[in-house]
Design a protein around this nucleic acid. Structure first.
Lengths: 162, 162
DNA sequence: ATGAGGCTTCCCATGATGGGAAGGTCAAGC
DNA sequence: GCTTGACCTTCCCATCATGGGAAGCCTCAT
C-alpha cells in the first residue's frame, strides 16, 4: 500500500512516516518503479506500535529500544519492563514538578481577591519572591524543563497583550 | 549594568535576555555609545519576574499579559487571578494526561514477569492495542502534547540502557 | 599597549510536527 | 488515448525556548 494508505491505517501522518524513515526509527521503505514508498501490513503494524508508544509518552529513543526488543525473539521481558518502569518514573517526576507549580499558583490565587482592586498576591509573589541572589543552578531537573508546550495563538494574542 | 551582570542578577541568561528583547517581551535596552546594552535595577526586577513566571510554567503569552498587568497601576486583580487559574487548569490537564500514561504503563508493568523470558504484556499491548482502524482524531488535546521534554542525557544513557 | 574577557550580531541546531511549492505518477472516466 | 484530480516525491520553511559558536569590536587592568 502507499504511504497515504499506511498513514490512514496506522494513525501516523505520512509526514511523520517519512520523518521516522530519515531518522532511522523505521527502515527505509521499498519503492515502486516510480519511487513511491510501498508498505506492507507488517510495516503498518510497526507504525501502530510507534504511535501507541508515542501516545504513552515514550521518548523517541525509548521507542527505538522497544522496537528493537519487540523484534528480538530472544529478548528478556526484564529489559522491556525496565524501560517501562523507567518511563513511569520519568512521568511521575514530571507530574510532581507540574503539581508543585499548580499548587503554588493555586495557593497564591486563593489569597487573591479577584476583584477590581489592583492588589494581588500573585503579582507580588512573582515580583518579589526571587529578589534575593537567586540560585543560578536553575532547572532542578524538572520544573522549568516541562514548562514548554500548549502552542497556538502566539503572536496574535501577544499583540493584544502588550 | 551590562547584560552579563543583569543575567547573573536575574537568573536569566544573556542569550535569553536578548531573545526576549527581539520578541518584544521586554523593551529594547538602552545602549552605551559602543552599543552595549545597559540595564537598571528595574530591568533586573522585570527579568526576575519573567524568570519566576517561567518557572511556574506560564507560557510566554501569559507572561506578557502578566507583565502588562504588573505595570498597570489600575489593573484589576481579577484579571491576574483569571490568568493564574487558567494556567492552573492547564497544568492540571497536563497532569491528568501524564497520570493516565503512567497508570496505563504501571498496570502493564505489573503484569510483566520481568525475567529472562521474552513474553511481555507491555509489548503485546503496544503491538496489539491499536490494531483496529484507530481513531484518526489524534491528540485528545493533552496526551501526545506533553510528550516532549526531559532533555539531556539522550544518546548517552541510551548506550548504557541497552 | 597589550591581553583577557565581555560585548555585539549572525548563523546553526534541537524535536516533532505541519505547511506549502514544484513537479512526477497513477487510475478513472471520457 | 488523453485529461483530470488525487496522490506521490523532495525540498524548504516555521514553530518555541534555548544554547553553541564564530567573527569582530570594546574595555579595563596591568
Amino acid at each position: 500500500m502507499t504511504i497515504g494508505e499506511a498513514a490512514a491505517a496506522s494513525g501516523v501522518s505520512a509526514k511523520m512516516i517519512r520523518y521516522y524513515e530519515t531518522t532511522g526509527l523505521i527502515a527505509r521503505a521499498t519503492r515502486s518503479g516510480a519511487g513511491y514508498r510501498h508498505y506492507t501490513e507488517a510495516d503498518v503494524h510497526t507504525l501502530r506500535f510507534i504511535r501507541r508508544a508515542r501516545d504513552l509518552g515514550f521518548t523517541t529513543d525509548a521507542i527505538a529500544e522497544l522496537l528493537a526488543l519487540w523484534h528480538d525473539r530472544s529478548r528478556h521481558s526484564a529489559d522491556v519492563k525496565e524501560i517501562a518502569l523507567g518511563h513511569v518514573a520519568a512521568l511521575r517526576g514530571r507530574i510532581a514538578a507540574l503539581e508543585a507549580m499548580a499548587a503554588t499558583l493555586a495557593a497564591l490565587a486563593t489569597h487573591c481577591h479577584g476583584d477590581q482592586r489592583p492588589d494581588c498576591p500573585i503579582l507580588l509573589d512573582l515580583a518579589e519572591s526571587g529578589t534575593q541572589p537567586h540560585d543560578t543552578t536553575r532547572h532542578e531537573e524538572g520544573a522549568a524543563t516541562m514548562t514548554r508546550d500548549m502552542p497556538a495563538r502566539r503572536r496574535a494574542q501577544r499583540s493584544t497583550a502588550r
